[in-house]
Nucleic acid binder design. Structure first.
Lengths: 119, 119
DNA sequence: TTGTTTTTGCAACCCGGTTGCATTGTGTAT
DNA sequence: ATACACAATGCAACCGGGTTGCAAAAACAA
């Protein structure tokens, strides 16, 4: 089952949500897929993306992906097809915070219309 | 009731979620507050912030806030106290998208520990 | 006062995420 | 092969935020 999920994620160019993965595997239970994604995430096989769509999306980590807070890339969320693309070549900017604030993580999500929904 | 909600939001320096507002008004129903926030948002009195905490936060629009996609500011989300601050002086960066992608909106959320939770 | 519109409260639903627990499956040592 | 230990799965249920339908209450106007 985990192999199937990993294969599915590997052939994607967009990040998938739990529900989307669920739809592709009618036979599997949601909790199984949920736990699969969690274990993948713990072992740094995939990383999660919060694109503000209300659903957490998952994508496989690239070779260059250290999953470190300092080197995160931006994501693009299409408001039409709801797909989330990794903008691996768009780094998150440096942010100067007020005094006393520390940074753990920066989330940069661009929302718009993707090339497929553009036409 | 709407006046009370507006007063509450005006005296905040952080964005509040529906649940948080609910806690401050035990007497009011959640759906009432929900609809209040929606009408405020429709009339551009407040704007919503998605800080990735799973709850939509709301803050009053400043004079300078046109609620235009092009002039949005970043937000800071404290992972300890869960408060969301408006970083009004931190603009969202320009992002170069792949060909065929259009931008509606850019969401920049910084997660970390705020000055109050620091010590 | 009567009638109309707005606002509110209640209840219920939806949906994603999450967990407990029993069942099934896999692997290992005897 | 058998027995045991552990991991993976399926099922059911729960939680919490968001959302809506509908009827009661309040505000407003004629």
């Amino acid at each position: 089952m985990r192999e199937l999920v990993l294969d599915l994620l590997l052939e994607q160019n967009v990040a998938l949500s739990l529900s989307e993965i669920e739809d592709k595997f009618d036979q599997a239970d949601r909790s199984t897929l949920y736990r699969t994604l969690k274990t993948f995430e713990e072992n740094k096989v995939i990383h999660s993306v919060d694109d503000g769509s209300g659903m957490i999306k998952y994508a496989v980590c690239k070779d260059t992906c250290s999953c470190n807070p300092s080197e995160l890339h931006a994501h693009f969320h299409c408001v039409k097809c709801k797909k989330t693309y990794c903008l691996t070549d768009v780094p998150v900017p440096e942010v100067n915070l007020p005094h006393g604030f520390s940074i753990d993580y920066v989330n940069l999500v661009v929302k718009g219309v993707c090339v497929n929904c553009r036409k």
